[in-house]
Design a protein around this nucleic acid. Sequence first.
DNA 1: ATATCGATGCCCT
DNA 2: GGGCATCGATATG
Length: 191
Amino acid sequence: MAPVKSPSPLPRHFFERDAVTVGRDIIGVTLLVHGVGGVIVEAEAYDQTDPASHSYGGRQTPRNTSMFGPPAHAYVYRSYGVHWCLNFVCGGRGGAVLIRALQPMAGMEHMFERRGAVPERRLCAGPGNLTQALAITGELDGKPLNAPPFKLLAHAREIEIVCGTRIGITRGTELPWRFGLANSRFVSRGF
DNA sequence: ATATCGATGCCCT
DNA sequence: GGGCATCGATATG
């Protein structure tokens, strides 16, 4: 019988690729923050060429500075003045992947404390809900992903990945840069 | 089921 | 002043 592989850290150069490639490959990876988190089931890619991106045209501002920093770091920004959104910075300046939904796996009691009495499938469904469940704030902006409080683990499982157009944008709406775990009920919306 | 609205930080014109 | 990588409450079919 073949040995069952346990979760392992991501390959060293995982994030040193373009955002679209990383966006597809990040599905199925486990994200933990202070030990709380789960499997990434939905993500979107953004890059410099993309009119929906904060890094569009190479424009750099105080907010998006992390997007132009080294890969494998967090870009955390405030959305609509109310929510925090978590991204992973990728290779190719100005590229990042927005983490949109998790299948909760660890520390769910903390998630319920932070999110209230929502159905389990809604705990981490949507970028703002996910950061609330994991207590992610702007303090983590620019922090490396290979060190606490972050932990990223790859699984050797075969999974089916679907893609579609991104959510909540008004430009670049035709780009199929939203990725998800097929048939997951933990995504923010169907594909 | 979809539609509208308010919360309100940061970037834009 | 207006728009935005959002969300939940409220109204209405």
